[in-house]
């Protein structure tokens, strides 16, 4: 306890609060590193939230729910991929349309699931490890999705940095004409990246409706997808910074609510602004401190690609 705030509870809460945004941002990062700007994160998240919820409720199985959430997000992302990569539609406009489409479709599909209760997502059992004071509560008391999201960040980091496939994905994102000339299948790589991004966003959405809230309500993502998009940019397209950004954002959000609950006399307006400001400032400082060469986004980000041009 520090000043009436229980730090272990705070950290445990922030991990839960940050997971949806972290998942969505990690997925979007991969898509953007492959050179596609998908503004439909919010739409994919909310479709994942409703799809995951519906399947979890009807099968009474949370695992199937998460799987369904990921599939829903992926299906929407592949629709986006088909439109932008094959039919060469404008990425920004298509992404915005995807968000609107996802919001509307989810409201329609979710009508009969309002007010229902999802099956519980069990916490992983680490046996005696969970009983370690402080650390046990922070590290070993979560459900599997929280760990999955962390593993995913590490995997994406390793994939982009050390593997040949990661190198190809980055090449496609930096200069799709060069990658094409070298014989890499730009469109296939982008389909894969977008599909992965959609699955992550859908999983994040499902986590929102199955664990964090837990229920289905129309429009429940309430902007989380946009936050994920912003975090990717401020994190300069690096997975480790996405993790910092998402946890910082979730952490300050949880902290400001706890400070209010504990009755601190800090102006509430400042507290509610804090998550946004602190996250942006921290990530901007981070990219200033590590400015070795170009830290801008992938060079081909958002540009249409056609093999003939």
């Amino acid at each position: 306890m520090i000043g009436g705030i229980d730090i272990t509870t705070l950290i445990a809460m922030l991990m839960v609060a940050s997971t949806p945004v972290l998942l969505a941002a990690t997925g979007e990062l991969v898509a953007e590193r492959a050179g596609v700007l998908n503004l439909g994160v919010e739409g994919m998240m909310i479709l994942g939230a409703v799809g995951g919820f519906a399947v979890a409720v009807s099968t009474q199985n949370a695992y199937l729910g998460f799987l369904a959430g990921a599939v829903c997000g992926m299906v929407l992302a592949l629709l986006f991929a088909t439109l932008t990569q094959i039919f060469l539609s404008n990425q920004v406009a298509t992404g915005l349309a995807l968000t609107l489409f996802g919001l509307g479709l989810s409201a329609l599909l979710g009508k009969s699931y309002e007010g229902m209760r999802p099956p519980a997502t069990p916490r992983l059992d680490f046996g005696p490890l969970s009983d370690i004071p402080v650390l046990g509560r922070i590290l070993f008391s979560h459900d599997w999705v929280v760990y999955l999201s962390l593993v995913l960040v590490a995997l994406v980091w390793g994939f982009l940095r050390f593997t040949r496939a990661g190198l190809i994905l980055r090449a496609v994102g930096e200069n799709h004409h060069a990658a094409h000339a070298l014989g890499y299948r730009v469109i296939l790589v982008r389909f894969a990246a977008l599909g992965f991004g959609g699955a992550c966003a859908g999983l994040g959405g499902a986590y929102l409706s199955l664990v964090r809230v837990p229920q289905w309500t129309e429009g429940m993502t309430a902007g989380a997808g946009w936050i994920a998009l912003a975090i990717v940019v401020f994190a300069s397209w690096r997975p480790e910074r996405v993790l910092i950004g998402a946890y910082l954002f979730g952490g300050i959000t949880a902290l400001q609510l706890q400070l209010q609950a504990a009755g601190y006399a800090i102006p509430v307006h400042l507290l509610s602004m804090a998550p946004y400001i602190v996250t942006i400032v921290a990530l901007v400082l981070l990219s200033i401190a590590h400015r070795h060469g170009a830290q801008a986004g992938p060079a081909s980000l958002g540009k249409p690609f056609h093999a003939s041009s």
């Binding site: 809460m13 609060a17 809230v213 229920q215 429940m220």
Partner: peptide
């Protein structure tokens, strides 16, 4: 606890969790 929103399920849930904590 002020949520500064009329409708934000995730934030409302977090606010409830903070109060319960």
């Amino acid at each position: 606890v002020w949520a500064y929103s009329w409708f934000d399920p995730a934030k409302e849930a977090d606010a409830a969790a903070a109060l319960i904590a």
